[in-house]
Design a binder for these strands. Structure first.
Lengths: 197, 197
DNA sequence: CCGGAAATTTACAGTCTGTGTAATTTCAAA
DNA sequence: TTTGAAATTACACAGACTGTAAATTTCCGG
């Protein structure tokens, strides 16, 4: 029997993905139920039906479980920016891309993950790294719209400010327990950005 | 024998500070010599002439040694901003404050510490948290210049963008191994900020 | 100067994350 | 059915960090 069209490997890889997914879900649920630090690796492994050692075959650390849930984000950001028409100033372009992404940030699950990521010093720190990755993704995508090398510094600044505004938006939104939609915070922050600078 | 004027405690506190300082220096030197991860707590404690357990009486973690070397920064930032005259736009004000601080960032030691902070994923993450603290400090200081509550969102954005520009400046400066002075990068970044937004 | 309170230091035992290694099991493909 | 790589596990271990209780030192009032 040959491969199907889109299955370069097949059976084995699929099972691998399933196991990884199962661990990620089990872990996340335990984090939500008992807190991040109170959840031991052994508990996660046991609840996932694997040995503690095998856990590290799938994830490089306990923290990595949370990263796995966010791995799609940089790509989503890239795609959203590339989908925008380049007849806007870079800052507006990113703003509009973010507005379209706001829905994904707002899902029940994203909020739960966000809460965990704010619960310990260690996670708060590594969560910042996530924003750095987004900044990188934004810069790369913008560089495709405007490939001129001499604009690089400008685009870098736009990426920094955009992601920063996004972060402030999410913070403000989280502080108000999600009364108003995230999108309205994003609009406010980006307009403050233009007004004030 | 009475206290001197500015010594509310005295002998004991002084010795405490000395010990802490000694540990911090010992640790930093070991990090520089052997790398952060390769340096065990036990090694630091032994080289400092204390037991491993006592280390945790002075620092809450190994990482904390590095934070200790940067503890003065937020205050320095606050002071520099408060020292600026408020007849400038907030962004310019922060820019000028940063330019005056650039010297401190550029010391031999600061560069060494910065290199260590870039050497592992964990430290890179926690280093981002440092920028968050700076952002907070900037915002607080700006709020003293402009206490009107309704300007808060604007000041927040200025703080975010300023610290972000500072971060990009330090990065760019580090990438070029310190050929040009840090100050010139800061000027570039801040002007890009105004041009592009 | 003295005795107790408080701060400092230490040893010891233990938890938890993460790694190295080697043995065993599973399974896809030849 | 054999074979080799991938997956899984046990075991042993390092290293950061915590809890606890016991020493030791320093301080402070009487």
């Amino acid at each position: 029997m040959e491969n199907e069209s889109t299955a370069p490997e097949g059976w084995r890889e699929q099972k691998r993905r399933e196991t990884r997914q199962r661990i990620a879900e089990t872990g996340l649920n335990l984090f939500i139920a008992n807190g991040y630090e109170a959840t031991t690796l052994e508990a996660i492994a046991a609840a996932s039906g694997i040995s503690a050692r095998t856990f590290f075959y799938y994830f490089k650390s306990k923290e990595d479980i949370l990263l796995a849930w966010q791995q799609g984000l940089p790509d989503a950001v890239r795609a959203a920016i590339l989908a925008e028409s380049p007849d806007q100033r870079p800052l507006h372009l990113v703003r509009n891309a973010f507005l379209k992404l706001a829905v994904q940030f707002s899902s029940e699950q994203a909020v739960a993950i966000d809460r965990i990521l704010r619960s310990t010093e260690q996670l708060r720190a590594s969560n910042q790294a996530k924003f750095l990755l987004m900044e990188k993704a934004v810069l790369e995508a913008l560089s495709e719209h405007w490939p001129q090398a001499r604009r690089r510094k400008a685009l870098q600044v736009v990426a920094m400010a955009s992601v920063g505004a996004m972060r402030l938006s999410v913070d403000a939104w989280g502080d108000e327990a999600g009364q108003k939609p995230l999108a309205s915070f994003i609009k406010q922050m980006f307009s403050a950005l233009e007004t004030e600078l």
